[in-house]
Write a protein that binds this DNA or RNA. Sequence first.
DNA 1: TTCAATGCAAATTTTTTGCAAAGTC
DNA 2: GACTTTGCAAAAAATTTGCATTGAA
Lengths: 139, 139
Amino acid sequence: MVQMPFLTPGDERRHLVEHGVRPLNHRVAVYRYLLDHPTHPTADDIYGDLKKHMASISRTTVYNVLNLLCDHDVVKRIAIEKNEMRYDANTVNHLHFKCTDCGRVFDLHDDPFPVVSIPEGFVVQDVQVNITGLCPGCA
Amino acid sequence: MVQMPFLTPGDERRHLVEHGVRPLNHRVAVYRYLLDHPTHPTADDIYGDLKKHMASISRTTVYNVLNLLCDHDVVKRIAIEKNEMRYDANTVNHLHFKCTDCGRVFDLHDDPFPVVSIPEGFVVQDVQVNITGLCPGCA
DNA sequence: TTCAATGCAAATTTTTTGCAAAGTC
DNA sequence: GACTTTGCAAAAAATTTGCATTGAA
């Protein structure tokens, strides 16, 4: 299930405020980037692209903002492979598929999201389903 | 579903050979460690513990062996959090639960393993279900 | 003896930290 | 003006690489 409708430009400020995040320029830029690029970029992808249009931004700030947005549940971290943390502004549960050939991470919209039965006593905060294999283009 | 019975000491050599891995001493030691410690250790956990009884082993070798065992599908990598790759000798599909408080990773044996429906054209190699939250002891 | 595996040190990559400068309310 | 955020450079942590040495068949 996709987060629909995606936040239109301008709405991201309100969304940040609703989650307790002051909408400073760099924060809005990183968040807007994630909304516009549902490609599960790494921190460095984001930094590299943003710097083209926002000369002032630093890697540290990208990391600061991403950590802040994760803490406030505005974006989610995806741990799907070694040495690369990816970020996703779509916080609705969905599957991720990483192609081992081209390296892209696809959203798979299993409907409904698979049900997992958790033993008594465990408190669930987040469920991630990460699939690896070959995408249609590479298979 | 647990991999039962676990390989008893001695059998790990045969298992390695069956997967095309020459059973050299360091390789057997790392694999035996993973069989004996189903706690999803990191490479450094393994190195630290093995070095106590095997003075000659190096960090590089632990990494080499883990990569080799993963390539030959003898062990699986678990990417469940930032900056830490964990390893599991149980290659049967099962859920992982990471406690955000104590940091431990538990096996959850959902029976059956949740079914995910994959769109036409994708070729699945591996499915990982990673849950974060609080374990019974920390909740 | 020939090829593969190991160990060390250095390099690489990703992320965090300390702290001074700049920005925000 | 008080407090927060940013940016730089350095530190930390995880993993890989180059290469000389050792080990195995």
